[in-house]
């Protein structure tokens, strides 16, 4: 009753239609941009994953274990875990899927950082930029991740590229936020010292602010990588290959076993990546 009265005065705003036509307009207008990205970036990603796939698994296992040994300060814990974990994945016949997932996470994280750090810097330098960017970041993080899949498919078709696109939107905010926070938290006296000795804006940023903010920024990057990884399963819904696709197909067929195994594979990858990024951060902090 009340509803119909209200609707009589103000008819339903066609928000959904507007969004749809806007997306359609974007797709057709920028197809000259989207299509080459889809093609070249898609090829590049497959190439990367395939190249990784060509390397014998045992080589990668040993390389990762050795790197883990040194990056954690010559301790065996992570190295042993990485070796056994990777071996388990290979043993379960998920190695190729792992390579795809890793490629997806790696490339979307790198892109997130490349995009996120400059925006974080911009935010820290300008109150206006912060006022504009902060709510956008909130929007990006709270909107259910599935929603991004729809325009992603419209722009880039199906496969790895729209997966990267969706995970970019979902995973970039922590890097932006923590870069901003890190720079704003640089002690005022150090900023003043940089200025008092006649630094230019760029000198102040690169010689003082970014080095001081490094560990905070690294924490943001670590978060970004973890979020990118969590997008792997969701991205598989639009055809991104990898461990996520195994989870998804197990879900669709109600197969507990294979679903669990693929899930464990993702967890192992997550732990290895997490410890790697954290150790890299801790080591730099010490120096």
């Amino acid at each position: 009753m009340f509803n119909s009265v209200l609707l009589a005065f103000i008819p339903t705003i066609p928000l959904a239609e507007w969004t749809a036509s806007f997306t359609a307009w974007l797709t057709s207008t920028f197809s000259f941009l989207f299509n080459p990205i889809k093609e070249h970036f898609g090829n590049f990603m497959s190439f990367t994953a395939d190249t990784l796939g060509v390397i014998p698994p045992i080589v990668i296992m040993i390389a990762v274990a050795v790197a883990a040994f040194f990056i954690t300060g010559r301790r065996f814990g992570l190295a042993a875990f990485a070796f056994v974990g990777l071996w388990l994945i290979q043993n379960q016949g998920l190695w190729d899927h792992l390579m795809y997932t890793f490629t997806l996470v790696l490339l979307s994280s790198i892109l997130s950082v490349i995009i996120g750090v400059p925006f974080g810097i911009l935010m820290s330098k300008s109150k206006t930029a912060e006022a504009i960017i902060a709510p956008i970041l909130d929007f990006m993080q709270t909107m259910p991740a599935f929603v991004y899949l729809i325009p992603a498919v419209a722009f880039f078709g199906i496969g790895m590229v729209p997966g990267v696109f969706a995970s970019l939107i979902f995973a970039t905010p922590p890097t932006v936020r923590l870069t901003n926070l890190g720079i704003r938290q640089v002690p005022k006296e150090l900023v003043e010292a940089a200025e008092a000795f006649g630094s230019t804006g760029a000198q102040k940023l690169f010689k003082v602010e970014l080095p001081m903010a490094k560990s905070t920024i690294m924490a943001g990057i670590n978060q970004t990588v973890m979020l990118a990884l969590s997008m792997v399963v969701i991205a598989s819904m639009i055809g991104a290959p990898g461990l996520g696709r195994e989870v998804l197909s197990a879900l669709q067929r109600a197969q507990v076993g294979p679903g669990f195994v693929a899930g464990v594979g993702i967890v192992i990858l997550a732990i290895i990546i997490d410890r790697f990024t954290q150790s890299a951060n801790a080591q730099r902090g010490k120096a």
Binding site: P187, E189, L190, E192, A193, E195, A196, F197, G198, V208, P211, M212, K214, A287
Partner: peptide, 18 residues
């Protein structure tokens, strides 16, 4: 001026820890 003429010393030293 800041580079050549005037330098500053800070209360909490203002040294760059890294």
């Amino acid at each position: 001026v800041r580079r050549k003429k005037m330098s500053m010393v800070f209360q909490k030293f203002g040294l760059f820890p890294f």
